[in-house]
Structure formats: C-alpha cells, structure tokens
Amino acid sequence: MKQALDLYGTLLRVAIAGNIQYRAAGMVWMLGMVIEPVIYLVVWSAVADSRGESVAGYDARDFAAYYLTFFVLHHLTFTWIMEVFQYRVQQGSLSFELLRPIHPIYADIADNVAYKLVMLVVMIPAAVVIALAFEPRFQPVGWSLALLPIAVVLAFFTRFFLEWGLAMSAFWTTRTTAVNRTYYSIYLFLSGRAAPIALLPAWLSGVAEHLPFYAMIGFPVELALGKLSPERALSGLGVQLVWTLFALGFVAMVWRRAVRRFSAVGG
C-alpha cells in the first residue's frame, strides 16, 4: 500500500510539473471545453424561449444549471487518451513506457489528475463567468449530492478504462481517426452532451440510460441537479458499477492481446 502511494506521489509530481510547463496548450483546450457546452446551453435556452415554456422540465435557467454542471463534471472525468495513443504506437514511444516496471496506465491516470488540478486555475473562473452570464438555477437535494462523489469516481473510471481500451485499436490500425470519430458521434447523443437525454425520443433515451455514455456524464450531472428519484439514482449507480467493472475487464483483455502485437522500431 505504501509502495503504491509512493508511486502515485512521484508520478503525480512529475505530471504536475509537465502540465505547468505546457500550460498554454492546456488553456486552449480549456477554452474549447467552455465553448462547446455554452453553445448547447444557448441553443436550448433559445428553444425554451421560443416555446415560452419549459422543455421536459427544463427552462432556460435549468439548462444553464445543467450545462454548467456538465462543464465542471466533464472536466473532472474526461480523458484525451484516444487522441494521443496512436502517436505512441506510431512513433514507438510506447517502447520506453513498456520498459518501466509498472503498467503505463498508472502514469496516464497521474497525468490526467495533474492536468485537472493545474487547470482548476482556469476552470473556476470560467465556471464563475458562465454562472454570471446565464444565471443558472440550482435546487440541490441533500442525499443526491451526498451520492455525487461516488458517481463521479465511477464515471471517471468507466470512461478512463473504456477509452484506454478503445485507444488500443491503434495496435491494429495505425489510423484511429475512424474509431474515434464514431465513438464521439455516439457519445454526443447518448451521454447527454447535445441535450439532456430526457429530450431524446423516448425509445432512445430508454436505451441510453443503460449505456456507458450516460453513466460517464449525463447521470452524474442529473444526480448533482437533484433531477432523479431515489430509485433511479440507485439503479444509475448500479449501471455505473457494472460498466466500470466491464471496462476494467475490457482494458485488461485488450492490453494482453495488444502488447503481443506491438513491435516498435527502437528510438
């Protein structure tokens, strides 16, 4: 246990230093992550305004709360591994990581956490600006907020493992763009990013509720807003747990097959 803590301590220190060094690139990313939810927020507020009434229980200020929470929780749970993994395989830098006595996924987790810690400096002001500009209405529910940390942790690991596993498609095809784009297109609708899933056609939102995309972000957001009944909150946590375990098994299985295929030219 102590060894594991030491390991993470060191990895985290290295990762924080790296993220501070490349802060400009990190800030540009942050800007993108602010703009996208704001666009959807504006669109849905316009829908609520055009109808002159709330849309599936959301009026303009509820949408503001939804997308502000989405922005914050997305920051906490997102990964960029699918964007970068193919370069590790193509350029062979994975060879170095394989030489280390620990699985490369540990360093990635540390890097992810470090980026998020460093970017809090930008994220908090951004969240304040969104809040001032769009006046969200929060009606938090105590028990639901109490469950939120568990939901966020499960969401983080579901997403991390699943995307790490999918990123390894780079071992079989060196151009992973097709896989990534397909994944993000599905994610856009089924996660609650383009719209809260309650606004999708009924059959689709029924399916989406049980898929990992919603478990990764839509569910924690709705939990934070107190939109869910106790039964739905519990079943949502159950779905998250199932997907976390599934994703863990998935990443382990793919990794075993993938490293056997890997043959890089030494650097």
């Binding site: 829908v47 055009s50 109808r51 784009r181 609708f189 719209a195 606004l199």
Partner: peptide, 24 residues
C-alpha cells in the same frame, strides 16, 4: 466517413432541437 459522421451528428442535433420547437 469523417465528413458523414460530422454532418450526421450536426443534423442529428438539429433534429433533436426541432423535435422540441417549430422555430428557433
């Protein structure tokens, strides 16, 4: 494939939006 997905998801979002309102 990329262009198709990009166009498809953009139109998909428009479809979700206009399923809730007749005019934006």
């Amino acid at each position: 494939l990329e262009s198709f997905l990009a166009m498809g998801s953009t139109l998909g979002v428009v479809a979700v939006v206009v399923s809730q309102t007749d005019s934006l």
